[in-house]
Structure formats: structure tokens, C-alpha cells
């Protein structure tokens, strides 16, 4: 009985995860290493990877900063009423429930060229939709809960007493944060950063809708994969996808490592 279950489990993993991964890798190298290299060194591929890199960096920075601050407010601030805090707390999770395509659509509706806000921005010469800012906003929307949800439970667990103790000893907000709070939430923040990087690296639906997928302008690595498949250029798609998958696997290893550190401290 027991052996059967273990074999079944292995089977599921092989069929669902190992086989597709392996197949993709062989496909990417179907024309040898040079084919793989050629698919990556296309100018549009380089540009798409660069765009993805920019989005990841900007989104991770903003999401980390605002995520930590918001987590602090939602856990600690008593200038927010209890009920308001509860409401905000449940709103944090909403992006989980929103399909990325809809997330992108929201931003098109709100800031697109046909909307009032979008027209306003266009007048001052800033394009949001079908441009970099829109892609960042869309990715921020999708990654929003990740940092908040990592940091909040840790803040709740450590409680406010150490911070209060610091204040009775004469330390003000900034010192208290760096000397007392930060060491406790450090690993949760790192874990949140890894999750944010992984999510923004892989974001597809929201970015596809918002960016318009313009080659050499707003195309990211994932949307390039999509376009390559649409153009029946499966080998090239496999090359880019393999790079993305390698990054994801690396992030997964980092996740495991930081999870373990999180437990220790």
C-alpha cells in the first residue's frame, strides 16, 4: 500500500513537473547550444530581458518599501480605528483574487488614453499605459500582498513591547526601527523580496494587457515567449523560457534557504 502511494506521488511529480521541464530544455537545445544562444541574442530577446529586469528592480524596491510601511501601520498604528484596520486588512488580499488580465484591464480603464486621468497625463507628456509606468503599476498591483503578508505575522508575533521598551529608554522612531524592529523582521522581508522578484519576473497577463506587447519597446521576457509561440517559433520561445525557468529555480532555492533562516530567528 505504502509503496503504491509513494510511486504514485513520484509519477505525479514526473508527469506534471519533471517531464514538461525536461521537454522544454531539450526543445530549447534542439538546434544545439548555438540555437539556444541565437534565440537569446536576438535584439528583441535582449531588450525583453532588460525590460523584465527593470520592472523587477523598480517593483521590488517600491513594493518592499510600501509593503513594510503598510504592514507596520496595519499591525501597530492605533490612529487607525479597529474597524478601518480590519477593512484595510481584507483589502490587502484582493489582488490574490483578481485575475492578472483583469488587473491589467483595470489599469487600462483607469489610466488608458480614453480615460480622464490618462488624457491628463498625456497632456503633460507622460504615457502610462502601453509604456513602462503602466507595466510597473500593473506588476505592483499583482505583487502587492506578498510583502505585507510576510511581514505582518512577524510583527504580530514579536509584539510591540520591545519597541515600547526602546521608547522608554529614550529611542525615537527611526532608531527603534533599525535597532529593534528590523532585526526581527529581516528574514521575513528577505523572503518577501524573493517572492516579489519571482512574481514580477513571471508576471504575464497584467503586463501583456497594459504593455501592448510592443517589440523592442514594452515587451518583457514572458510576453516575448507568448509572441514567439503565436508565431510558431517554439524553439526560440523555449530558449527564453528556459532562462526564466532557471531564474525561478534559483529563486526557489533562495526561498527554501530564507524560510529556514526565518525559522531560526
Amino acid at each position: 500500500m505504502r509503496k503504491l502511494w509513494i510511486i504514485l506521488t513520484y509519477l505525479v511529480f514526473i508527469l506534471l513537473i519533471a517531464a514538461p521541464l525536461g521537454k522544454m530544455a531539450t526543445e530549447a537545445f534542439s538546434d544545439g547550444f548555438s540555437g539556444f544562444w541565437a534565440s537569446l541574442s536576438r535584439p528583441e530577446a535582449l531588450h525583453a530581458l532588460m525590460m523584465t529586469g527593470f520592472v523587477v528592480v523598480v517593483v521590488t524596491l517600491l513594493n518592499t518599501l510600501f509593503g513594510i510601511m503598510l504592514a507596520l501601520y496595519l499591525v501597530r498604528a492605533n490612529w487607525l480605528g479597529k474597524r478601518l484596520k480590519g477593512l484595510l486588512n481584507s483589502i490587502v488580499d484582493l489582488p490574490y483574487a483578481v485575475s492578472p488580465v483583469i488587473g491589467g484591464l483595470m489599469i487600462v480603464l483607469l489610466l488608458g488614453p480614453d480615460s480622464a486621468l490618462g488624457a491628463l497625463f498625456e497632456q503633460i507628456g507622460v504615457n502610462i499605459v502601453y509604456a513602462f509606468p503602466g507595466m510597473v503599476i500593473a506588476t505592483l498591483f499583482v505583487t502587492f500582498p506578498l510583502m505585507v503578508r510576510e511581514v505582518m505575522p512577524v510583527l504580530q508575533e514579536i509584539g510591540s513591547q520591545q519597541e515600547e521598551a526602546a521608547s522608554t529608554l529614550g529611542a525615537y522612531g527611526w532608531t527603534t526601527f533599525w535597532k529593534v524592529t528590523w532585526p526581527s523582521i529581516r528574514w521575513a522581508v528577505i523572503y518577501g523580496v524573493i517572492l516579489t522578484v519571482a512574481r514580477s519576473l513571471g508576471e504575464f497577463g497584467a503586463v501583456l494587457v497594459v504593455s501592448g506587447n510592443i517589440m523592442n519597446k514594452t515587451q518583457t521576457a514572458t510576453t516575448l515567449v507568448y509572441q514567439d509561440v503565436e508565431n510558431f517559433n517554439v524553439t526560440a520561445a523555449g530558449g527564453v523560457a528556459l532562462v526564466l525557468a532557471a531564474f525561478s529555480a534559483g529563486l526557489l532555492l533562495l526561498m527554501e534557504w530564507s524560510k529556514r533562516r526565518k525559522g531560526v530567528h
Binding site: L169, G170, S184
Partner: peptide, 26 residues
């Protein structure tokens, strides 16, 4: 004022020495 908390609220990332020195360093 000096405040001693019920669960002590010691700074868990600091040694005994650093804990005691905290108020003076600040």
C-alpha cells in the same frame, strides 16, 4: 522613566551588555 515589562521585553538580538547599554547609546 525606567520601565520593566512583565515579560521583560529584552531586545532579543542584543547581548546582555548591549541591552543594558542601549539607553545610554541612544
Amino acid at each position: 522613566i525606567g520601565f520593566v515589562f512583565q515579560n521583560y521585553a529584552l531586545f532579543k538580538h542584543m547581548t546582555v551588555y548591549e541591552n543594558i547599554a542601549f539607553g545610554l547609546k541612544v
